[in-house]
Amino acid sequence: MQIYLPVAELSVDVFLLLGMGAGVGVLSGLFGVGGGFLMTPLLIFIGIPPAVAVASEANQLVATSVSGVLAHWRRGGVDFKMGMVLLTGGVLGSGLGVWLFKLLRGLGQIDLAISLCYVVFLGIVGALMMSESLRALLRKRKGVARRGKLHRHTWIHGLPLKMRFQKSRLYISAVMPFLIGLLVGLLAAIMGVGGGFIMVPAMIYLLGMPTAMVAGTSLFQILFVVSTVTLLQSAANQTVDVILALLLLAGSVVGVQVGSRLGARLPSEQFRVLLAALVLAVCLKLLFDLVTRPDDLFSLQPGIL
């Protein structure tokens, strides 16, 4: 059954969109990621204009993150003070990102920018995740529990504007979370992702936040950043397709539940390796498309330079 998407201005199979939502939803539930990094490239792949894909995916992520935030908040897993600092950076970053998006679109380089961002960030995160989870897997096999230092003093602790984050039991400079928020906001606007796959490692390794606080706090920041991106993309570029977002959402709601139930029964270390492999596969596919000669060197873009 075909449905005409009013903003994307093309007609797509309803069941394809529901299926994509469900499929990515299962993976999100399984691994606890938003799934934007899979959904946006998929949308572009089926022919949705990149600008519409990025903006509508941000809209869908609002729904995905709100239920997560509520669940973590009930368990007391959200550090609101840290969240606000991240968010300040995030709102600024997403504003900057939407502006940059408009500029690059005018130059005809937005597709390239999106692809390059994906290749770089998925490559870094995928490689880190892969090595980390493989090491964890090996450690488990050997049965050696290595205990690290409780607190490592690095250059990050020398930054000014120190703040006390009671919930995370941290006394660190606000500059670092602000910068992380800024970067994630920027990427959210350009790549149509929540940015959890960058923020979660950054919060654990750079800020040293307790794991119990990481998921809830990052979702809190993501909720507000993707909302900001949705609003700004709608206002500046008119590229948010609500019908598209709602269809993806309907599929993903079901998928996430299936995925999280599956995830509870499966060994987590092996699955982290799988997620890393998936991230690297998406990265390599995009890299391949960038370096191979396209079938047609020419493309059309509405409007004048």
Binding site: N59, V62, V66, G68, L70, Q238, A245
Partner: peptide, 21 residues
Amino acid sequence: FPILHGLVAILLALMAGWLAG
């Protein structure tokens, strides 16, 4: 009404997400 449209889009997604949860 691009700004209002953005707000409605966010509101719809918030409601859908909350309902799903």
